[in-house]
Amino acid sequence: MLAKIPECHGCGSDGKISVQPHAKVKTMSTSLVGGWSAFNFELSSAAREVFQEAVRHLLGVSYTPFAFATQVVAGTNYSYLAQAKTVAPESSLRVVRVHIFQPLPGKGEPHVTQIIAIEP
C-alpha cells in the first residue's frame, strides 16, 4: 500500500520547490552565550593552574583532574572531572565532579563551589 503524499504548498506551478536566494537560515551554534563548553580531555596549563590553586587548601583527599568544561559568566565557572583518592591506607579511587569559580581578574582567587561524587 502506498501512502498518499499531501499537496506541496511551497511548490511552484511546475511542481518544483522554489528557493529564495535571500532566505534566512537558522544554524545551530556549537557554543551558547552563558552555556557550558563540551568537556575537554586535554587539560590546558591555564585550566590545570586554576584547579591546583582552588584545591590546594583541601586536606584529606588528593584530586587529579582529567577533563574540564567552562562557562563564561562574570568570571569563569569550571567543571572538572577528577579522580579522588582519600589520603588513607587502602582507600578506593573515586570519580568526582569539582566545580570551581574563577572571578574576574583582581576580584579574588579561584575557589571550589561544589564537589559531587559520580556513582557508577
Rank of each mutant, 00 (worst) to 15 (best):
H9C: 03
Q114S: 14
I115F: 00
E109F: 08
H9T: 12
P89W: 01
P21T: 09
G34D: 06
V25H: 01
S92P: 07
F68P: 06
L93N: 13
F39K: 01
K85P: 03
E109Q: 15
G60F: 04
E109W: 08
P110I: 06
K85E: 14
E119A: 13
E42N: 12
P65F: 01
H111Y: 11
S44A: 09
A69H: 02
L104R: 09
H111V: 04
A54H: 11
K85Q: 15
P105C: 01
S18D: 13
T70D: 04
E53L: 15
K24D: 07
A69R: 15
I118D: 05
G106E: 05
G12V: 11
N77D: 13
T64I: 02
E42A: 10
Q52C: 09
S13P: 06
G12M: 15
Q20W: 11
V55P: 07
G15K: 12
A38E: 13
P6T: 00
K107N: 01
F41M: 10
F66A: 06
V112F: 05
A46D: 15
L59A: 13
G75H: 00
I17A: 11
F39Y: 15
G108L: 08
H99W: 01
E119R: 12
F68S: 08
K24G: 08
E49P: 08
S79E: 14
P6I: 04
L32D: 02
E49V: 00
H9R: 13
Y63H: 11
G108Q: 06
T64G: 02
F51N: 08
T86A: 05
P105H: 03
H99C: 03
L81R: 07
E53T: 15
V96Y: 04
D14E: 13
F51P: 07
E42D: 12
W36C: 02
I100G: 03
I118N: 09
I100K: 06
S79V: 02
G35H: 07
F51T: 06
I116A: 11
F51L: 08
F51M: 08
Y80E: 09
P21H: 03
A88M: 00
